[in-house]
């Protein structure tokens, strides 16, 4: 469980996050949605510790990330996996070396144990047999899956995904969403996904927070999304002309 408590973030005079309070639950896919510039990425970077909030706290169970000492911070880092928008795979390393990197750096496993763990993760994301390829030799969807495999190789308790569907076709997006959702359920991890893809919201949004101009505009689950009368939520979801036409036709 991760709890954001009264998070404020300013860049100079510009207020980017304005008092965000939200509970990201364990074993659920928690979605942060909102328009571009609403503060989603800044919130995610604060949650993983890449940015410090101007004020407020980020609680990982009972540890406050903002005030944690270096030892607990280091332990915490070992329990965090992240999938980046651009995958952030090291292009000079093979897929196997990419996934093995956290194991090489932080564990004292033998090479065989590490290779087994890498193969297990690759099988988990349905990508067996690409160990010796380089990131540039595989497709964007496969790169996302390798990114997920690297994020879960240390069996993290917390998984962060920054726009996991960006640049992917709808079918591959659904596969990635389902994969993240399955991993979350199977390992009972706290997953936070930053997205503006409505398919993801309707597929895997178990706990959703909508940001608007740095404020929490709405929270709920995918089942409540269509019923709720919140104006900001309505504007965000039905922004697409295609959906609007569908609604008009159904009426």
């Amino acid at each position: 469980m991760i709890r954001a408590e009264n998070i404020f973030k300013n860049f100079g005079d510009q207020v980017v996050l304005n008092g965000i309070d939200f509970l990201f639950e364990a074993g659920k896919t928690n979605l942060v949605i909102g328009k571009s510039g609403s503060g989603k990425t800044v919130l995610l970077k604060i949650l993983v510790g890449l940015f410090k909030p101007t004020s407020g706290s980020v609680w990982y169970d009972d540890i406050d990330l903002v005030t944690a000492n270096k030892t607990s911070l280091r332990k915490l880092r070992m329990q965090v996996g992240m999938l980046f928008q651009g995958n952030a795979l090291f292009d000079s390393m093979t897929i196997e070396e990419n996934i093995r990197f956290p194991l090489d750096m932080f564990t004292h496993m033998t090479l065989k144990e590490k290779t087994d763990q890498v193969n297990f993760c690759l099988e988990r994301v349905s990508l067996s047999g690409v160990n010796k390829k380089f990131p540039s030799e595989i497709s964007g969807g496969m790169q996302k899956r390798v990114g997920i495999a690297r994020a879960i190789v240390l069996n993290p308790k917390y998984l962060f995904c920054d726009e996991p569907n960006s640049g992917l076709d709808p079918q591959t997006s659904i596969t990635i969403d389902e994969l993240i959702s399955d991993i979350t359920k199977d390992n009972n991890i706290t997953t936070i996904i930053n997205t503006h893809d409505m398919n993801s919201v309707m597929e895997i949004g178990e706990n959703i927070c909508l940001l608007e101009k740095g404020k929490l505009a709405w929270k709920g689950s995918k089942d409540e999304v269509l019923q709720d009368k919140n104006e900001v939520l309505h504007d965000f979801i039905f922004a697409s002309p295609f959906l609007q036409k569908l609604i008009e036709n159904s009426k």
Partner: peptide, 13 residues
């Protein structure tokens, strides 16, 4: 630029 450094920092490197 490619967020490799961010990725390493999140890993704890």
């Amino acid at each position: 630029q490619k967020e490799h450094i961010d990725a390493m920092e999140i890993m704890g490197v």
